[in-house]
Computed example of a mutant assay.
Amino acid sequence: MADWYRQKSWSKADEEYFFAKLARARKDGRAQYLKIQALELTETGIPQLLDAAEKLIDKLFTEYPEDRFNRPDALVTLGNIYKQRGNIDKAVYYYKQALDFELVYPQVKTQAYSYFSELVVKTEKTEFYDFVEKIIIKRVNSSLFPIEKYKGYSILSIIYSHRKDFETAAYFEALAEQNASAETSGLRYHKYLGIVKDRDSWLDKLVRKK
């Protein structure tokens, strides 16, 4: 049986059960439970459950405004909600909010930079390209996972191609291909963690378009 804060449905009974459990939970853990339950509902992709997830995040922000640990992940979830609804501008806005929060509180890290960067290049929001370049270079070079490097270097290749710097674009394309073909992560005890199992056809197409 799933944990009470990891429900994949949200009937009236589900909602009442969750809030009854939440009321009995330790106060310093309630923001986290709201965040996790919102994430679980978001992952279903069901429109009415996306609405319920957004309400849970609103509750988190309203009742726990000083919570710094859970806020960036909640902002990322809002970005995912609006992306699934097809509201790209709102999705970009919330991913950017998470990134701005991380700049102030660098000890808290999420995957906002990856979601934001992919959405920016796939929708050709070129006004963000300089910002994307900076955050990818900062994050991807320290990453241990080939899939993260594959995506990051692909995005950098697309950005440099847009700038007509084809030599640098080709350099990053080669790095992306190298990581896409990596058979292990290089980690001693988790050799296959984070390798590229399924390539992103959309990114690949954008890289090769130049």
Results as ranks from 00 to 15, higher is better:
residue 158 I to F: 08
residue 97 Q to W: 03
residue 140 V to L: 08
residue 108 V to C: 05
residue 102 E to M: 02
residue 166 F to Y: 14
residue 160 Y to S: 03
residue 160 Y to I: 02
residue 90 K to T: 15
residue 166 F to G: 06
residue 163 R to L: 07
residue 181 S to H: 11
residue 130 D to M: 07
residue 141 N to K: 12
residue 115 Y to L: 10
residue 94 Y to A: 01
residue 140 V to S: 10
residue 120 V to M: 09
residue 110 T to L: 06
residue 182 A to C: 08
residue 119 L to V: 08
residue 174 A to L: 12
residue 174 A to K: 12
residue 91 A to H: 02
residue 133 E to Q: 11
residue 129 Y to E: 04
residue 120 V to T: 05
residue 146 P to M: 11
residue 112 A to K: 07
residue 177 E to T: 15
residue 114 S to T: 13
residue 150 Y to H: 12
residue 132 V to G: 01
residue 94 Y to M: 03
residue 126 T to F: 06
residue 175 L to Y: 04
residue 111 Q to F: 11
residue 143 S to V: 05
residue 142 S to T: 14
residue 158 I to Q: 09
residue 93 Y to A: 13
residue 140 V to K: 02
residue 155 I to L: 08
residue 139 R to H: 12
residue 174 A to D: 11
residue 133 E to N: 09
residue 90 K to F: 07
residue 174 A to E: 14
residue 148 E to I: 14
residue 127 E to H: 08
residue 183 E to C: 10
residue 165 D to R: 02
residue 166 F to N: 12
residue 88 I to Y: 02
residue 179 N to W: 05
residue 184 T to Q: 09
residue 132 V to E: 00
residue 149 K to H: 00
residue 106 P to Q: 06
residue 114 S to W: 10
residue 93 Y to M: 15
residue 180 A to D: 13
residue 94 Y to P: 07
residue 148 E to Y: 10
residue 170 A to T: 13
residue 139 R to L: 08
residue 147 I to L: 15
residue 118 E to G: 09
residue 148 E to V: 15
residue 161 S to W: 08
residue 111 Q to M: 12
residue 123 T to M: 01
residue 103 L to P: 00
residue 108 V to E: 14
residue 149 K to Y: 02
residue 143 S to K: 04
residue 92 V to S: 06
residue 120 V to K: 06
residue 145 F to Y: 15
residue 129 Y to M: 05
residue 94 Y to S: 02
residue 136 I to M: 09
residue 141 N to A: 02
residue 98 A to K: 07
residue 183 E to N: 11
residue 172 F to W: 14
residue 106 P to H: 06
residue 176 A to W: 01
residue 104 V to Q: 14
residue 155 I to N: 09
residue 162 H to N: 10
residue 134 K to A: 13
residue 183 E to L: 14
residue 121 V to E: 05
residue 179 N to E: 10
residue 113 Y to L: 05
residue 112 A to P: 00
residue 113 Y to W: 14
residue 173 E to T: 14
residue 157 S to H: 03
residue 108 V to S: 07
residue 143 S to G: 01
residue 169 A to C: 04
residue 150 Y to T: 15
residue 167 E to W: 06
residue 133 E to M: 07
residue 163 R to C: 04
residue 163 R to I: 03
residue 117 S to G: 05
residue 160 Y to Q: 00
residue 88 I to N: 02
residue 112 A to M: 05
residue 153 Y to R: 07
residue 146 P to R: 08
residue 139 R to C: 06
residue 171 Y to D: 10
residue 136 I to F: 11
residue 170 A to R: 10
residue 128 F to P: 05
residue 144 L to E: 12
residue 122 K to L: 07
residue 171 Y to M: 10
residue 153 Y to C: 04
residue 133 E to L: 05
residue 154 S to M: 12
residue 132 V to A: 00
residue 134 K to I: 10
residue 149 K to D: 00
residue 128 F to H: 15
residue 89 D to S: 14
residue 142 S to H: 07
residue 155 I to P: 08
residue 118 E to F: 01
residue 129 Y to D: 04
residue 154 S to Q: 10
residue 128 F to N: 11
residue 157 S to K: 06
residue 178 Q to K: 13
residue 116 F to K: 02
residue 115 Y to F: 13
residue 99 L to S: 00
residue 123 T to K: 04
residue 106 P to A: 05
residue 124 E to L: 07
residue 101 F to W: 07
residue 100 D to W: 01
residue 126 T to P: 00
residue 141 N to D: 13
residue 121 V to C: 04
residue 104 V to T: 15
residue 183 E to Y: 09
residue 163 R to P: 03
residue 140 V to M: 14
residue 122 K to V: 07
